[in-house]
Computed example of a mutant assay.
Amino acid sequence: MSDSSKRSLIALIADLPGQISALVKAEIEQAKVKAIHLGKNAGMGAVFVAVALIFVFFAVGTLVAVIILALALVMPAWLAALIVFVLFILLAAVFGYIALRYFKRLSEEQGPIEGLQKDFRAVKGVGEYERK
């Protein structure tokens, strides 16, 4: 038999805190390495997404120019550009109005402090609350 197999149960139990400590340290180190790895990959992914979005930005501008040039085949170029401009302004107004409605909903919702105050009033039996 080897020396480690002859060790007593008490000696093994005495070694347990040190082994647990080493295991926790190893797990923390592994988590750090994984976080660094994830951070590097996420950073590189974000860079490539930003580059792709720059190209999409220019592609959309080119598409707008194509639309204006296509309309210019059947009407004066200034009128085609004006129509596309007005279309974009109308779309911006519609989306802005929709966004405004969503932002107004934020102020209508009850905050956590108001909810707690309402709950305290309900417990005291004062104020408006639903009875079930």
Rank of each mutant, 00 (worst) to 15 (best):
40 K>I: 14
73 L>R: 06
103 F>H: 15
31 A>K: 13
7 R>H: 08
56 V>E: 07
49 V>I: 15
54 I>Y: 05
104 K>C: 08
62 T>Y: 12
58 F>R: 06
81 A>D: 08
75 M>Y: 11
10 I>P: 00
43 G>M: 07
121 R>T: 02
9 L>F: 13
76 P>Y: 09
55 F>C: 10
87 L>I: 06
124 K>D: 05
113 I>E: 09
112 P>T: 15
130 E>I: 09
66 V>M: 07
95 F>P: 02
120 F>K: 05
68 I>D: 06
122 A>E: 08
98 I>L: 13
31 A>N: 05
28 I>N: 00
132 K>R: 13
46 A>T: 10
43 G>F: 11
55 F>P: 08
87 L>Q: 04
55 F>G: 13
125 G>C: 11
14 A>V: 04
8 S>I: 07
95 F>N: 09
121 R>C: 01
44 M>L: 14
59 A>Q: 08
65 A>S: 13
120 F>L: 11
83 I>V: 15
53 L>M: 08
61 G>A: 05
130 E>L: 15
53 L>P: 01
18 G>F: 03
118 K>T: 02
43 G>V: 07
45 G>L: 12
86 V>D: 07
52 A>I: 03
19 Q>H: 01
95 F>M: 12
36 I>A: 14
96 G>K: 15
111 G>D: 12
43 G>N: 08
34 K>E: 06
33 V>I: 07
